[in-house]
Every structure is written in structure tokens, then in C-alpha cells.
Design a protein around this nucleic acid. Structure first.
Lengths: 175, 175
DNA sequence: CGTCTATTTGAATGTACTCAAAAGCGGTGG
DNA sequence: CCACCGCTTTTGAGTACATTCAAATAGACG
């Protein structure tokens, strides 16, 4: 598919990193420079508000791409921090490298078009769920939809993804 | 940019329609065949659940693209209905035509990559807002962010977008 | 003018949060 | 291997947020 010069080019723009459990790949408030691909391990993107409350916007496990897409696209300070839930190996792509890649190898436009189309579809569904379903139902669906994530995260983190307190999620589970 | 044969091709795959106020462009439960572009007017995408409650997943005004992206991508029955909020002129693109367009004119991969990247970014922000902000704050931000939409929709529709009852939104406004 | 729907208001109820405290669990060091 | 530490999870009481239902008021439209 690709020439060997292209392969070299790709190798030059992607960088591989490993992060130990609980370290931050990206800090809320600092420029959101990178798009990440999880090779192995898992990540969590979360925002902390003035009162110190965490809101988890997404998790990423094997083969998922993750970033603060708004701030990445506009090159603004990130609204979220990215945390390794376990020792995690990622491939990182700088914003400049991302733009350069698309300019140089237009094949990747298709790749990312499909990636973002799916991501958009997923978020549209999440929006629908969050305005139309009860917490109980959203929790139930989360367990079914993302069993790989459930294995790796705490209940508190699931609560912050669903937008409820850990205490309340605990009481919902009892039923 | 495009050859005249390409222009003819484009003209052949896009279809222009006008819909009178309050008519449905797409019915919940029927195959989601089309991607719409609003030339003039405005649309609302909403889902009705078993208890008859409406959840609005998005509005679209001039120059916005809209569809039920999950069901469009997978060619499944739509989870939402699409309603014209006023007399509205749209350009419609069939799923097959969409796929065909991308295969034939790869330039459009870039166009839609950017479109979906932005749409994804917008939905990620919405998810963050919905789990971290109060109804009052989300209402305030909606008014600031989408003044063009506010002009055209009822309070009840905004309530169904925010995921609260119209009665409650009314009481929030009083303050 | 009359009809239909949106909006407001209020009372009663249910859902979710806060705060505090107890119980459980995993990791770490002695 | 056990004891302790820190964090998560559970539990409960009190409070705040949001819904339901019903009824009154206000607006939009033919």
C-alpha cells in the first residue's frame, strides 16, 4: 500500500511512549498537542471543576484513539486531563504531524473520516442516552456496551462518566 | 477545482427538497437513508420513547449537516425523527450516493473528515457539559452558544434538548 | 373569536446530592 | 505474614434538585 519512503515518514511522525499507572499523559489547562492511540493498556479523560469534582468524558482501551478533540482541533488548552489507568503503551501524534500527515498522504483522510464519523455517532448516542434514560438504565447499558472498560475502572470512575455521585451509583446497584 | 463532468455528477447525486413547517423529513423507526444539509430554514432531530417523551438530540440551522449518524453509518432504522421547524430547503444525500461520492472524488474525504471531526468535538463538549453543569448553567450557555437556534425554537424544545421537563425549565428561568 | 399548544404556577412525590461515618480492599513496609 | 494506610464502596439521615399532575394563563394561528 505504502512506499518504503512513506513508511519511514510514518515512523518519523508517530512516537511511542509508555506511561506508568496513574500518571498523566496530558494535563488539564495545558495546550492539547496530541492525539493518542492506545496500543495496550487503558486511559481515562476527565475534567476537574472549581469545586474539585471530576467528570469523565471518555475511557480508551486497546486500539482506541483519544484526545480532547475540541482543544486539539483548535490548539487550545485542554479541558481534560488524560490518565493511565494501568501501565499503558500509546502512540502519539502531534497536531502538526497530524496535519502534515493528511497533506502528504491523503489516504489518511479516509481513515480519519471514518474514525471521526464513528466517534461522532457514538457521542450522538451518548447524548440521547443521557437525556432520555434513568441512571439505572444508563449504568446497565454501560456494563453491556463496554465490558472491557468495566474490568479496568472503579465504580467511582463509572459514576463520574455517568454524571452521578459514587454514593448514588452504589445505591442504584443495590436494586 | 472540479471538472464539468464532476459537476454534473455532483448535481446528479444531491437532491434538493423543501419541507413545510412541522413536516417530518425522516421518521423514527424507518431506515435512515439520508444525510441532510440545511440550505435555509431549520430542523430538529428528536426521539420519542415508550412513555411518549421527546428527547431532542440536535437542531440544525443554515449550513448545518444533520442525520442520525449511527443509523446512517450502519444503515439501520433511525432512532430519531427529523422535523422542519419552519419551511426549510435542504440538500439530501443518500447513503449509497455518499459512499459513491467518496470513492469517486476523494477530495470529499477531507471535507467530511473535517466536518465529522468538528461534530465529534462538539458532542464531546456537550457530554462534558451535561455531566458537569447545572441545568441553569447549561441553559445559560445554550442561549449564548446558539442564538440563531433560540430564535426559532420553543422553550419546550430547548427543555427536551437539555433533558429536563418544560415545567422545570420554566422555573429555572424565573431566577 | 375560538381552538390549540406553550408556558407558568403550585403542591406532592421521587430522584439525586451532601455530609458523615463505617466497612471493605489492596498495597506497602516492617 | 501481618498491621497499617489510603482509597473505594456502602449506608443512612437530611436537603436540594427535578418530575408529575393539575389547573390557570398566555400566545399563536386560522
Amino acid at each position: 500500500m505504502l512506499h518504503s519512503s512513506d513508511r519511514k515518514y510514518l515512523a518519523s511522525i508517530f512516537s511511542v511512549h509508555t506511561f506508568a499507572k496513574k500518571t498523566l499523559l496530558q494535563h488539564q489547562g495545558q495546550l492539547c498537542k496530541k492525539l493518542f492511540f492506545v496500543e495496550e493498556g487503558s486511559l481515562r479523560a476527565f475534567s476537574v471543576n472549581e469545586e474539585g469534582k471530576e467528570a469523565t468524558i471518555m475511557f480508551a482501551v486497546d486500539d482506541w484513539w483519544i484526545t480532547d478533540m475540541y482543544c486539539f482541533s483548535k490548539q487550545l488548552p485542554a479541558m481534560v486531563s488524560l490518565e493511565a489507568l494501568e501501565d499503558t503503551k500509546v502512540v502519539a501524534l502531534n497536531f502538526e504531524a497530524f496535519e502534515n500527515l493528511l497533506a502528504r498522504l491523503p489516504k489518511f483522510e479516509r481513515f480519519f473520516r471514518i474514525l471521526f464519523q464513528n466517534a461522532y455517532a457514538r457521542e450522538q448516542l451518548r447524548a440521547l442516552d443521557s437525556i432520555s434514560l434513568s441512571t439505572e438504565e444508563r449504568y446497565r447499558r454501560f456494563l453491556i456496551k463496554y465490558p472491557q472498560i468495566v474490568e479496568k475502572v472503579t465504580q467511582k470512575q463509572i459514576a463520574s462518566y455517568l454524571g452521578v455521585t459514587p454514593e448514588f451509583l452504589s445505591s442504584v446497584k443495590k436494586k
